[in-house]
Design a protein around this nucleic acid. Structure first.
Lengths: 181, 181
DNA sequence: TGTAGCATGTAAGCCGTTACATGATTGA
DNA sequence: TCAATCATGTAACGGCTTACATGCTACA
């Protein structure tokens, strides 16, 4: 069963692939991983979608979920299967990736600056710069936690990529504010 | 009628706002504008969605469409109304913008590099660099066409922002390729 | 003892895409 | 005359979000 999945499915499957032979992740935990890493260069899917995707991936045999009963509660931990790992490899090898899509509300609004005033636009950019620094700090934490071990070589590269992006973005925001002053 | 519209609606309304008192745009033309400018920092909506949004905006009174009959064919040109301009100003002034979302399939795949090999990852980045240059050239054309006139001051800033982004992105891609070599 | 966080789902609905349908106009 | 481009829509459907629903567990 090959099946064409949406990219988000592969993204989540990819997160599970990093767990190796560990006990696996609950849907809740997977959502946390997505929030802390995936969100920087893909999306942070809603909780409900995480469960939907887990159901789909399990039906395809790409992951297995085993129930852990503890007195009164049952939680389910998912692990990637060999078939899932193959599917992920196939996806990586075939089909070339689309060009990135940037949804940039600040740039969009700046484009319409003639309907507002420079002060408002500058204030918007200032606010954006603050948010940018918060985001950067969060990503820096991720980067630090990855360290320099071989196992996390690729995620580390992606994190560095993101940090570089935030740095140059901040620099450009400053230039734009100067242009508005 | 205030109504909360999706950002894409405002984006298209914003494009119409640039037409000033000209004859207006057909849905087809609006789609072309979106493809050549909006796509760099928002999205390029499908043709069908452009018509859907046009219908919505017209129902709200934010735009008016007048029919041009020419022998056998009727085309409709839309112009922004005063009410539409007010709605756009209101949207710009209130409600602060969300943080940008980047959907970056190349970064996503690089994250899973341990499932492929460095050669494949490097090839992917090379391909991406080529695409990046094509995009950059397209945006440069837009930038050039905007010139340095006051009327296009803001779109010009946004275009410069985009060019800066593509430049730093290319630089980073080269660094990553070196790291993989 | 109460509240924040852990944990799992279903339902309704919006945004946006692809596929489908149709036809006019322009220029090689 | 034929193909590309202009031009306008509708239908089906997928992806994803928000809202709804439910209950456990740890800890202050």
């Amino acid at each position: 069963m090959s099946q064409d999945l949406a990219t988000t499915s592969y993204a989540l499957l990819g997160l599970l692939a990093f767990e190796g032979d560990r006990a696996g992740l609950t849907g809740y935990e997977l959502k946390q991983r997505a929030d802390s890493t995936l969100r920087f260069y893909w999306v942070a899917p809603a909780m409900s979608q995480v469960y939907t995707e887990l159901g789909r991936l399990a039906r395809l045999g790409f992951i297995t979920g085993d129930d852990r009963r503890s007195a009164r509660r049952t939680t389910r931990r998912y692990r990637i299967t060999d078939s899932g790992r193959r599917a992920l490899r196939r996806w990586l090898a075939t089909g070339q990736p689309e060009f990135p899509v940037l949804k940039h509300p600040i740039a969009l609004r700046l484009m319409m600056g003639h309907l507002a005033d420079d002060d408002a636009m500058r204030a918007m950019l200032e606010e954006y710069e603050r948010d940018l620094l918060v985001r950067r700090a969060e990503l820096q934490e991720v980067r630090t936690s990855l360290g320099d071990v071989a196992a996390y070589r690729y995620p580390a590269m992606v994190a560095d990529w993101g940090l570089h992006y935030y740095d140059t973005e901040q620099q450009m925001v400053r230039e734009l504010m100067a242009r508005l002053a």
